[in-house]
Write a protein that binds this DNA or RNA. Structure first.
Lengths: 136, 136
DNA sequence: TCTTGACCTTCCCATGATGGGAAGGACTAT
DNA sequence: ATAGTCCTTCCCATCATGGGAAGGTCAAGA
């Protein structure tokens, strides 16, 4: 099958398939005489794996590791679990960070009338001279 | 004061100050005969405003709007509040998305022994042929 | 006065993951 | 044969930030 069909079947755009190939995430497929890439069903399987990994927020480098583990039939499940749990912690940290930003803003907005008057504690806070604060 | 001092005082790197100027987020300051940028205390104030906005997750374009509102002494607080609340929703959506990813992964990891054996439901899930699923 | 070191300037490049689009060749159905 | 849809490679853009080179400037100390 051509790249278009592989894209449709895997949910990975043709553009991305070529990119993944260029960075060595997936192996280069065979080509027709006219240089068209030719994919097998198994390649679609791999692309779906990548898609799932990306959907769960793994970076391409992490996905590369997961692919290696997937292909290594003798891998230890501990390696996979460690990678996954490290990622879970990253995701949760990031989520907590966003949540904290949202809470701060929501709090400021609570005290903002939200009418035609110019007075607004949100801007007042932004403009306030801050005490030294660390950046996450 | 020179750009280095403005950077230290505002918490915005010199690199970023120049960049913000180049995209018109902040106005170009006066220059010495040797082309050194010269900042006033008020400029540091503006930079701090930008910094605070960025720390709360506003994009540079949103920050541009907030700056305009800040400078417009006759703004309606409703405009500020709307912008802030729209951003709060974005942040909360994003946070929920990350949390969902983390939950899914944590769930998969729960059923993974995490020992020397190769068997691991995490990879098994990744490799499973998915039913059609929408991407967020 | 000269030197040194810390500052400043502009310019280019890199990141991560993705998309847009141009120019040109290949294939398919009418 | 012709149109339309696919494919190819190549370059550019995004978003916000940092790294670093090459070269000019300034202040302090010998």
């Amino acid at each position: 099958m051509n790249i278009g069909e592989a894209a449709t079947r895997s949910g990975v755009s043709a553009k991305m398939i070529r990119y993944y190939e260029s960075i060595g995430l997936i192996t280069a497929p065979a080509r027709t005489a006219a240089q068209y890439r030719v994919y097998a069903a198994d390649d679609v399987h791999t692309l779906r794996f990548v898609r799932r990994s990306r959907d769960l927020g793994f970076s391409l480098e992490e996905t590369r590791e997961l692919l290696a583990l997937w292909r290594d039939k003798s891998r230890a499940s501990a390696d996979v679990k460690n990678l996954a749990m490290a990622h879970v912690r990253e995701l949760e940290e990031k989520a907590a960070e966003l949540k904290a930003m949202a809470d701060t803003l929501r709090h400021l907005a609570t005290h903002c009338h939200g009418d035609h008057r110019p007075d607004c504690p949100i801007l007042a806070d932004f403009a306030a001279t801050p005490t030294v604060q660390a950046k996450a």
